[in-house]
C-alpha cells in the first residue's frame, strides 16, 4: 500500500468537516464511516473554534488542514504556516483558487506555492486538475501526493473525465493519487477506486445528504468495494456479447 509522506492511511476515505447540520451529526458521520482523515480549516476566531478542535481531536482521524479560499501565493503560504502551528502537522491540503464560480485551481500559482511550502518543510497535498503536465510540475516542486478533481467542488457530478484520470493513474503509477472534489454518490467513489486511485476526499456529498452518517458509511463501503475490485483485476469491457453459460453440451431440442 502506498504511503502519504511515509504515513499509511487507516483507510482511503478522507472526509471533510464542513456543512453538517450539527456537530453531533458530523461526529456520527466520522464514527459510522471510520474515515481515516479529516480535513479542517482556519477561520477568524468567533468562539466556536476551541470546541470544534476538541471534537476533531477526539475523532482520532489524521488531520489535513486546507488553504480553502486562498487566491494568491502569499495568502496560501501564510495560511499554511498558521495551520501548521494550530494543527501541529506538516500536512497541508493546498488549494489555490483561480476562479470564483468554478473554484478551479490556479495551477500556475499552485506549483509556485507548492515549491515554497515544500522548501519550508511542509508535506503538500495539492488540489489540482487532471492535467498531466501540471501533475509532473507539482512532483518536481516536491509534492509526493497529487489530488486531481473529479468535478468542481460541491458539484456532485462525479468523475467528469475518466479518460484523463485513467491517464493520470497510468502516468504516475507510484504516486499516491486522491480524487478530491466532485464526488456526489457512492458509485462515483467506487469508480475512483476501480480506476486505481488510492483515496477519495469528499465533503458536500455526505454533509448535505439527508442522513449524513448513513451516506458517510455508504461512501466507505463503496470505496472498499472499488478498491477490492481494482485489486481483483476487472475484465475489459467489450462491444459484443459473449455467452457465459457453456455452449458445449447444450441439448438439441429444436
Amino acid at each position: 500500500m502506498k504511503t502519504f509522506y511515509g504515513t499509511e492511511l487507516p483507510n482511503p476515505l478522507m472526509l471533510g468537516t464542513a456543512q453538517y447540520p450539527s456537530p453531533a451529526i458530523l461526529e456520527r458521520a466520522f464514527r459510522d464511516s471510520g474515515a481515516g482523515v479529516a480535513t479542517v480549516s482556519l477561520r477568524r476566531e468567533s468562539g466556536a473554534g476551541q470546541a470544534f478542535w476538541q471534537m476533531i481531536r477526539d475523532l482520532g482521524a489524521l488531520i489535513l488542514p486546507n488553504t480553502a479560499g486562498c487566491h494568491t501565493v502569499k495568502e496560501a503560504v501564510t495560511t499554511a504556516h498558521m495551520a501548521r502551528e494550530v494543527f501541529d502537522t506538516k500536512w497541508v491540503k493546498l488549494e489555490l483558487i483561480g476562479h470564483t464560480d468554478s473554484l478551479q485551481p490556479d495551477v500556475f500559482q499552485l506549483v509556485e506555492t507548492a515549491r515554497i511550502l515544500t522548501e519550508d518543510g511542509f508535506q503538500v497535498f495539492p488540489y489540482t486538475t487532471d492535467d498531466l503536465i501540471v501533475g509532473e510540475r507539482l512532483l518536481g516542486a516536491g509534492c509526493e501526493v497529487l489530488m486531481p478533481w473529479g468535478a468542481p467542488i460541491g458539484s456532485g457530478r462525479g468523475l467528469n473525465n475518466t479518460y484523463a484520470l485513467r491517464a493520470m493513474r497510468a502516468e504516475f503509477p507510484e504516486v499516491p493519487l486522491v480524487i478530491d472534489a466532485g464526488v456526489g454518490l457512492p458509485s462515483h467513489a467506487a469508480q475512483a477506486m476501480e480506476l486505481g486511485y488510492d483515496a477519495v476526499l469528499l465533503n458536500t456529498a455526505v454533509a448535505r445528504a439527508g442522513d449524513p452518517a448513513a451516506m458517510a458509511r455508504a461512501m466507505m463501503l463503496a470505496i472498499q468495494a472499488g478498491q477490492l475490485a481494482h485489486q481483483a483485476d476487472p475484465i475489459e469491457a467489450r462491444d459484443m456479447a459473449e455467452p457465459s453459460t457453456p455452449v458445449i453440451g447444450k441439448a438439441f431440442l429444436s
Partner: peptide, 10 residues
C-alpha cells in the same frame, strides 16, 4: 491583526 482558530473545512 488576524487571529484564527480551527474551523470546519472540506
Amino acid at each position: 491583526v488576524e487571529i484564527l482558530s480551527p474551523m470546519q473545512g472540506g
